[in-house]
C-alpha cells in the first residue's frame, strides 16, 4: 500500500522533476555562474513570499475556494503594522502590537470571507474580488497615501533582512516554518483531514458530520493569516509598506499552485506541491534574467506552466490506471471521473 502510494506520487512528480531538471541542465550548459550556493539561496529567497502566501491559499483551494484578495490583504496588513510601529518610534513593543493588530484585521477579514461565502451563500469569486477592492482602497486610508519606511536596525528591519549564519536569508526560514506548519495541520490534525474531505465532496462531508461552515471559516482565516505574514515579511524585506506592497501577488500565488499540481477545483494538493511549484516559478524567473529574455518572461512562464500541467495530468491519468495502455475507452472513463471530482 505504502509502496504503491510512493510509486504513484513519484509518477505524478515526474513532469515537474523533468521540468526542473531540464531548466537545470539548460542553465548548466549556458551559464557557468548559475551553479553557486548563493544563486540557489537567492532563488529560494525570491519565492519565499509567494511560498508563504501559497501555503495559506492551499487551505482555501483544498475546500474548493479561492482568495483573490490576498495581495491587497498583504499590503493592508503590512501598512497597518508599519504605521503602528512607526508611531511607536519603532520600539519592539510597538512593532509587536502592530503585528497583532494586523493579524487581528486579517483574521477578521478571513472570518468575514467565510461568513459571506457559507452563511450568505455568495460565490467566493465575488466575495474575494469585492474585498480585494475594499482592502486595496483601505490601504491609503491607513498610510495617509504615503509609503511608510523603517530604518535599518529597527525590529522590522531585523524581521525582514537578517541572515542566519550570515548566509541564509531569514525569509527562507519563514517559508520553511510556514510550510512545515501547513504540512502538520493538513496531515496530522483532524482539521486537515476534514479540509480534504470538504474539498472532495462537501455534501458527503456534511452528511458524515463535518461542520462545513466552521471549517470553511477557519480555512479562510488561515489564508488571510498567511497573507498577513507574507505581506509583513515582504514589506520588512523592502523596508517600506504602501499600496504597491503585495499588489497583484495573488496571480503569482495561483501560478505557483497550478505548477505545483494543486487542483484548483478542490480536494487535491499537497504542501510539497506548493513548495515545488513556487521553486519552479523562481527558477523560471532566474532563467529568464540569466538568459536576458526579459521581454519574453510571461511567454516563457506561460509555456512552461502549460506544458508541465498538461504532462502531469496525462501521466496522472495513466498512473491511475496502473500500467500500460488499455485502450481509449478506459482512459476516457477515468478522465470523466477525474473531471466530475
Amino acid at each position: 500500500m505504502k509502496k504503491e502510494d510512493l510509486a504513484r506520487s513519484f509518477k505524478v512528480w515526474i513532469p515537474r522533476i523533468i521540468a526542473f531538471g531540464a531548466i537545470f541542465i539548460f542553465m548548466a550548459i549556458m551559464e557557468q555562474s548559475f551553479f553557486s550556493t548563493s544563486n540557489f539561496i537567492e532563488i529560494i529567497r525570491s519565492v519565499s513570499v509567494y511560498g508563504v502566501m501559497s501555503c495559506g491559499m492551499l487551505f482555501v483551494v483544498l475546500i474548493g475556494g479561492l482568495d483573490l484578495s490576498m495581495g491587497a490583504m498583504a499590503g493592508l496588513c503590512a501598512s497597518i503594522m508599519f504605521v503602528i510601529a512607526q508611531n511607536g518610534a519603532n520600539s519592539l513593543s510597538a512593532t509587536l502590537l502592530g503585528f497583532v493588530v494586523a493579524l487581528a484585521v486579517a483574521l477578521a477579514v478571513g472570518w468575514l470571507h467565510g461568513f459571506f461565502i457559507t452563511t450568505l451563500k455568495i460565490p467566493f469569486f465575488v466575495v474575494t474580488l469585492a474585498t480585494k477592492y475594499i482592502l486595496y482602497g483601505a490601504i491609503p486610508l491607513v498610510t495617509a497615501g504615503k509609503y511608510v519606511y523603517v530604518r535599518g536596525g529597527s525590529p522590522i528591519d531585523k524581521i525582514g533582512t537578517s541572515r542566519i549564519f550570515d548566509t541564509i536569508p531569514i525569509l527562507v526560514v519563514y517559508f520553511v516554518i510556514i510550510a512545515l506548519v501547513t504540512w502538520f495541520i493538513l496531515n496530522k490534525t483532524v482539521f486537515g483531514r476534514r479540509i480534504y474531505a470538504i474539498g472532495g465532496n462537501p455534501t458527503a462531508a456534511g452528511f458524515v458530520g463535518i461542520k462545513v461552515f466552521k471549517n470553511t471559516n477557519i480555512a479562510y482565516m488561515l489564508c488571510t493569516t498567511a497573507a498577513c505574514i507574507g505581506g509583513v515579511i515582504l514589506a520588512a524585506n523592502n523596508q517600506q509598506a504602501g499600496t504597491t506592497t503585495g499588489n497583484a501577488y495573488e496571480g503569482m500565488v495561483l501560478m505557483a499552485m497550478i505548477v505545483g499540481g494543486i487542483n484548483l477545483a478542490g480536494g487535491q494538493g499537497t504542501v510539497s506541491g506548493v513548495v515545488f511549484g513556487a521553486l519552479i516559478i523562481g527558477l523560471i524567473q532566474n532563467l529568464v534574467t540569466f538568459m536576458s529574455w526579459g521581454d519574453y518572461l510571461k511567454l516563457v512562464q506561460g509555456a512552461i506552466i502549460l506544458i508541465v500541467v498538461i504532462v502531469s495530468v496525462v501521466t496522472h491519468t495513466r498512473s491511475m490506471r496502473g500500467k500500460g495502455r488499455k485502450g481509449r475507452k478506459l482512459l476516457a472513463k477515468v478522465k470523466a471521473e477525474a473531471q466530475d471530482e
Binding site: S36, N39, E42, Q285, N286, F290
Partner: peptide, 10 residues
C-alpha cells in the same frame, strides 16, 4: 532585488 541578485551572479 531578485533580478539584481541574478545579474550579480551573471
Amino acid at each position: 532585488q531578485t533580478n539584481m541578485a541574478t545579474l550579480i551572479q551573471k
